[in-house]
Computed example of a mutant assay.
Amino acid sequence: MTTMPAPLREVADRNEEHVRAYRSSNLIVLLEDPTTPAATKDAVLAHVAPWSDAFQRMISVRAAFETDPQLKELALEHQQEEVGHNDILADSHRSGRTAGWDPVVEAGAAWFVDQFRTLPGLHRVVLAHLVLEAGSLTFSNAGSLAFPGNAYFALHDEADEEHIEMGYRLLAERQDWQLGEVTELLDHAWQIITMVSDRIAELARRDTVVPA
């Protein structure tokens, strides 16, 4: 683990608070609950697919708009490692169900894409590595319980931890960021992640409700 100076330790502690809260979100609880019907868990994979596709757009925009040479290299490395993971998700568990367009999921994705276009480079690092990857790791841990042996979740359990560490290493090396700005960004981004996740859980339950 990266050795952390005091401001970065505050960032890590704040982020871990958000991760703990996210573990109690509707989506994670749904996947980890052994009483959740299999059909509902299957529906989660269909409804998370548009978000997985949007993640590819997010990391592409980050790489395209980054101008700092060091951060550009990191963004391109991250993009290369993530390319095609949405296809792995689609191939890992085909249920025949396809998610339609949803305004909440699309709005959340659009917020992240816009941030990757406009924020300074280290703020992009925070979004990509401390929020998106930490959220993905939490989701993958829950998904591994719900879908043992699933190739997509097995891949992300290992890859996401390294991607999170990438972010902390960069913030430890660079001093051109402000604690208040970073913690505010964490707060906003985790609200978006939770909003989208709760919506995915809602859609999965709605699609598999048993008529009375």
Rank of each mutant, 00 (worst) to 15 (best):
M195A: 07
M1T: 11
V48K: 06
N141F: 11
F112G: 03
F153H: 03
A159Y: 02
L186H: 00
F55A: 04
N150F: 08
D33G: 12
M1Q: 11
D160Y: 01
E66T: 15
H123A: 14
A189W: 00
I164C: 01
L31Y: 07
S197C: 07
R94S: 07
H156N: 13
L130K: 09
G167E: 00
D42G: 15
H18C: 13
E81R: 10
I200L: 02
A39M: 12
T118A: 09
V61Y: 02
Q178M: 07
Q191F: 03
A146F: 14
I192N: 01
V126F: 07
A54T: 05
D42Q: 13
S136D: 13
I28G: 02
D198W: 03
N150K: 05
P148I: 08
I59M: 07
A6D: 15
R97M: 13
W177E: 01
N15F: 06
L119N: 13
R174G: 02
A212Q: 11
G143T: 06
S24P: 05
V19Q: 03
L71Q: 12
Q79M: 07
D102Y: 09
L185K: 05
D198V: 01
T194D: 08
S25C: 15
T3M: 12
P5I: 08
L71D: 06
S140K: 10
E81G: 15
L179M: 02
D114A: 11
R23T: 08
P5F: 08
V29S: 15
D207C: 06
E181Q: 13
N86L: 00
T194V: 04
G100E: 06
S95D: 04
A63G: 09
V61S: 05
D187W: 02
A39P: 06
D187R: 01
A54H: 04
E16Q: 14
E161V: 01
L27W: 07
V125C: 11
S140H: 14
T40C: 14
H47F: 15
Q80W: 09
V44T: 11
P5N: 09
Y22D: 12
A90H: 05
E106L: 09
L137R: 15
L8T: 12
A6G: 01
L127E: 02
G121C: 12
T98L: 11
R62A: 15
L179H: 01
D53N: 13
A151V: 15
I59F: 08
A6W: 09
I200H: 01
E184Y: 05
T208H: 06
L74M: 08
M4F: 12
P103K: 11
R205Q: 06
E73P: 01
V196I: 08
G180K: 05
A90N: 05
V126D: 04
L89I: 05
R199W: 03
T194K: 02
A99Y: 04
W190R: 02
S25W: 03
G96K: 11
R20L: 14
I200T: 03
V19H: 06
L8H: 12
V61I: 13
T2V: 15
